[in-house]
Amino acid sequence: MAVPSGAPHRAPRRAAAGKDQRAERTLGALAACVLLLIAAMVVTVFINAWPSFSHNGLSWFGSGGDVDTQLRSMEEASPLPGHSPYYFRAWPLIWGTLLTTLLAVLIALVVSTLAAIFLTEFAPRPVRRALEPVIRLLAGVPSVVYGLIGILALAPFINDHLISNARKASVAYVVQLNGADLMTATLILSVMITPIMVALIASALSVVPITWREGSIALGVNRWRTVVRVSLRTARPAIVAATVLATARALGEAIMLAMVAGSHGFPANPLDGITFLFEPVRPLAATIVQASGALTISTVAHTLYAMAAVLLVSAAMLSFAGWAAKQPLKRYGIRA
C-alpha cells in the first residue's frame, strides 16, 4: 500500500479527542445549569414561603376561620382584627387536597388495575385494539376541557338529580350546595389519572415471565387467580410507581379542580354523612390559581408560595414513599 506523498498527516486522534472533550464539557455544563435552575427554583419557593410560615408558626396548618376571608383581607390590605397581616389557617385547603387526592387515587387504583388486567388477560383481540386508543384519548384530554365538562355538564347533573332540596336546605346556613363539590371533583380526577395508571400497570403485567403464568395454569389454577396471585404480585413495583405518579398528578391538578370543586374553601365534614360528598372543597393547587390575580400583593404572594412549598414537599415525600415501598419486594426477586 503506497503512502500518499505530499499532504502532511495531521494527528487526527488528538484533534478528535479535543472535539469530544469540548462536546462533553458543553453538554455537562448544560446539564449542570438545568440542575442549578431546578435547585434555585426550590430554594426560591422556600425563601418566599418563609414569611408566611414564620408569622403563623405551625398553626399555619391548623384550622381557624374561613380561608376566603383571610385571603380577601390580605388583598384588601386590611388585616383581621387582632391578627397579623399574614394570618392564615390552611387546614380547609389541606383537608380538601387530602380528600380529593386520596379518594381519586383510590378509585383510580381499583379501576386501573381491573382495566389493566382486562387489557392484558381477558380482552379479546378486537376489543383490546379498540380499548388502547380509548385510553390514549382519555390521557390526552386537556384538564381545562375536563373542567368545562365538569362545571357545565356533570355538576348541574349532580345538582339536579342527586342533591335533593331538603339536603340543600339542611346546610344552607353554612354552605351552598350547587353540584360543584367533592363528588364531581373526585370523579373527574379519577378519570384524569386512570389512563396513565392503566398504561403503566398493563405494561408491567405484560412482561410477567410466561414461565410463571404457564406454570400456574399447568397447576390447575384458573386465569383470574393466576393474574391475582402471580402477575399482580410481580407487577407490584409498577403498581406502586403508577400510584405515586397518579398521586403527584392529582396533587398538582389545579385548573380542573379550580373549575369544578367549588369556589368555597370549606372543610368538608365526613360526619355529615352522605351530604359530605356534596360539599364544596378547594384543594391547595386550585387555591393558588384562583388567588393568583392578587400575586402583586406581598402578603398574598408569600401565602401562595407557602402553599407551593407544601406541594413541593408533598411531591418529594411521595417519591420517597414510592421508593421505600419497592424495597421489600426485592427480597422475593421481584425487580422494579
Binding site: 426560591t44 419557593v45 393558588i288 406541594l311 413541593l312 411531591a315 411521595l318
Partner: peptide
C-alpha cells in the same frame, strides 16, 4: 412531578 401551578408562580 411538580405541579404546573408551582412552576407558574416561580
Amino acid at each position: 412531578g411538580i405541579p404546573s401551578v408551582v412552576l407558574a408562580i416561580f
